[in-house]
């Protein structure tokens, strides 16, 4: 019974949200008995930049290289999700199943080689 099994995940999910809230509430209690200091000022609430005042907004345009890596990740993730059902039944099958998967992975390996050849994998 799949739904029943995954109810346990839900139970653990609730407990895992409560778990970090326990020390945080302890921290909150310390502030209630005036033991934890709380006197923020402009210098304290400024962002930490090794003592230098921060210039410019934080959000700047990042390199498109990051996007390429993320896209490569998505592509290989989808590939792996396709391959897991094959992997489960692979040991029960005959030789011809191997050819089907070889085509699938071969096409993507070609893509990886293509990216390599075009120096898209160089991190700079």
């Amino acid at each position: 019974m799949i739904v029943e099994e995954y109810f346990r995940v839900f139970l653990l999910l609730i407990l895992s949200i409560l778990f970090p809230l326990l020390p945080l509430s302890g921290s909150y209690l310390f502030s209630k008995i005036n033991y934890r200091p709380f006197n923020s000022n402009d210098v304290k609430s400024a962002i930490y930049e090794c003592g230098v005042e921060s210039e410019d907004i934080t959000w700047r345009q990042f390199n498109a290289k990051y996007f390429l890596y993320a896209l490569g990740f998505v592509i290989f993730d989808v590939e792996v999700i396709f391959l897991f059902p094959w992997a489960v039944i692979h040991s029960e099958q005959s030789y011809d199943i191997f050819l089907k998967v070889a085509i699938f992975v071969g096409v993507l390996a070609f893509g990886l080689l293509y990216a390599w050849k075009w120096r898209a994998l160089e991190w700079q």
Binding site: L68, I75, P85, W86, I89, V107, G111, Y114, A120
Partner: peptide, 28 residues
């Protein structure tokens, strides 16, 4: 996936390949 829908399975890899090539051409 490897029996009845084998064509779709193989086509998926070609689709993913096109996505990869597209990403490379965006960056370069």
């Amino acid at each position: 996936l490897l029996g009845k829908y084998i064509i779709a399975f193989e086509l998926a890899s070609i689709l993913l390949l096109f996505a990869l090539i597209g990403a490379i051409s965006i960056v370069r």
